[in-house]
């Protein structure tokens, strides 16, 4: 009888014990262990420079960027709006982690191309990782004919390379921060005193003020700038506005170039002297390949 009772209890207990626990089974079977942190920044550009973000596989982004003249150029130049520099770029995501791009800037008639690879992404949960890390490498070819015919530079002499390690952390949905150690190599420099290799540290932040609007700031500190002419570190502030497939970025910066080697190393304007260029980036994303 005693055994029978025990057996009976054993039959009962698990049934009672488990019948309420569908939720517990769900927890146990749940797939989510370490969710990735997305949307550290709104777009692939923080302001002038790149952010850690890449587009998803099969997305072609068409980017049009403008920088007008200097705000302090007065009414005669309509505060810089009479003068305009443009870059347009086609940027295609071969993979969620890999983007290839081509662009053309009106400034010094420069062609540029870059590869961007997302090395690691910030994660929370069981195996967290505190940062997103993206590698960036670009080459720019200056094609403006600002030389005497007998000094015609070769293709290689017209090239400049940039390498960056972008390291970012989204502290909370409204605050993200980015560090960007940068290396720039010039195949040709104007005088012997000018360095061929420059080391620069970039800092950037995004502060969201609403779901679709954020304020961004970006600063690049150049450790060993050019000697032959006076350059300034590039500083930029701006507003991001996100609407569906578009991102509008309104930018105030002392830099006029929209590619890395330009705004990082060749900026001459003094932001606080009023040498500020108004500009914008407009990005439109097209889904070229169907997502898997």
């Amino acid at each position: 009888m005693r055994y029978f009772l025990i057996s009976f209890l054993m039959l009962l207990v698990p049934t009672i014990g488990f019948s309420q626990d569908l939720e517990a089974i769900l927890e146990q079977e749940s797939l989510e262990t370490s969710p990735l942190t997305f949307g550290t920044f709104n777009g692939t550009r923080l302001l002038n420079g790149h952010s850690v973000e890449t587009r998803k596989e099969g997305v072609l982004e068409f980017l049009i960027s403008h920088r007008f003249g200097r705000l302090n150029s007065g009414f005669d130049q309509l505060f810089g709006l009479d003068e305009s520099n443009i870059r347009f770029g086609f940027e295609y995501a071969l993979h969620d982690k890999l983007t290839i791009a081509f662009g053309r800037s009106s400034l010094e008639k420069t062609f540029d191309s870059y590869l961007k690879y997302r090395l690691a992404q910030q994660k929370t949960g069981k195996t967290p990782f505190p940062f997103s890390i993206t590698l960036f490498g670009s080459a720019a070819e200056k094609t403006i004919k600002d030389y005497l015919p007998e000094n015609k530079p070769t293709f290689s002499e017209r090239l400049t390379y940039t390498g960056q390690v972008l390291i970012a952390r989204k502290f909370n949905p409204n605050l993200s921060f980015q560090l960007a150690p940068t290396y720039v190599h010039f195949n040709t420099v104007s005088t012997e005193n000018d360095p061929h290799d420059m080391f620069v540290l970039g800092l950037g932040t995004r502060i969201k003020i609403s779901k679709r609007v954020s304020i961004n700031g970006e600063y690049y500190y150049n450790v060993n700038p050019f000697e032959s002419f006076d350059t300034k570190n590039s500083l930029a502030f701006g507003i991001d506005i996100e609407t569906g497939g578009h991102i509008f970025q309104l930018i105030f910066t002392n830099a006029v170039s929209m590619i890395e080697k330009g705004f990082i190393t060749e900026t001459t304007g003094g932001f606080f002297k009023g040498d500020i260029h108004f500009g914008f980036n407009i990005s439109r994303a097209f889904q070229i390949k169907k997502p898997k």
Partner: peptide, 9 residues
């Protein structure tokens, strides 16, 4: 989604 950007948004 049909568009990956839709998924992000």
């Amino acid at each position: 989604f049909k568009k990956t950007l839709m998924r992000e948004h």
